[in-house]
Amino acid sequence: MEFFLQQFINAMALGGTYALIAIGLAMIFSVMNLINFAHGELMTIGGYVLFFLLVMGMPFGAALLLSLVAAALAAVAMELVAFRPFRNADIVTMLLTSFAVSSILHVLFQNFIGVRPKAIAVPPAISGALTFGTFNVGVVPLISILASVVSVVALVLFLRTTHVGVAMRAAAQDFRTTQLMGINANAVILAAFAISGLLAGVAGALWIFQRGAVDPVMGVMPLLKAFIAVVVGGLGSLPGAAVGGLLLGTLEVFLRAYLPEGLLPFRDAISLSLVIGIFTFYPHGLFGDADAVR
């Protein structure tokens, strides 16, 4: 039971991080039909900004906040420079554009910052563990769960109560009609990028708390996981992305925890087979819309 509870916390922590990245991806997809494969690089940008601010001697909390802002600004810049010229272009064109942005950023990081990982000293207060009797839980997983919950609640409030938030939800349903209602498309899309960048920044920080360093290709693996989560949840559905992220994190952690040692090398194959299993029953993803763009 204790082992199970430990793994449950681990699953929620990992799933929560995947969910944050997945929600950002889904948000961009819902307003402009773009699967942004450069989204993972926003995590890396946030990480590098955190690293350089800490090197300059800024206190950890302030540097962390600024790194989130930087990730959001980087997302906005990405939209202005790379994606705006291709607005309404074919989905494949935009997909390839996002791959190009991702590769270009990798090379820039490697050549101007360095190929070696940059270590980030995380304060001892958030790298320790809390002990409750015999039960022991790391601070980072707790922070991950907390940060994911806070981010999602804030996002829901934003989408439900603010003007831009409502416009974004409308745009996700039918962009053309929303524009006809007098909503500024650029403003909605910029807001979507800023929020997705912010979420990527939070996820990047959580990721760095775990690994203690930032390197040029840090964002690739979590992005792939988040992409799977988005598809499982149903392309473009925000609740779907969140559920997909949690589901994928839970699958990964429990397979690692309970598969016999001999089967462990196959765990990715097993978890992805289960994902395919989901598609046989929900071909459009759990929360997907059969009429959505394919």
């Binding site: 940059k118 320790g128 022991n136 790391g138």
Partner: peptide, 28 residues
């Protein structure tokens, strides 16, 4: 990081690929 964070203090032996600046910057 995660091993020490969980309070496991068993000594660890590693090999040449961790002879990098990152290892020395990991702190405690």
């Amino acid at each position: 990081k995660q091993l020490r964070a969980a309070g496991v203090d068993i000594p660890v032996l590693g090999a040449d690929a961790i002879d990098t600046a990152t290892t020395f910057a990991l702190g405690a």
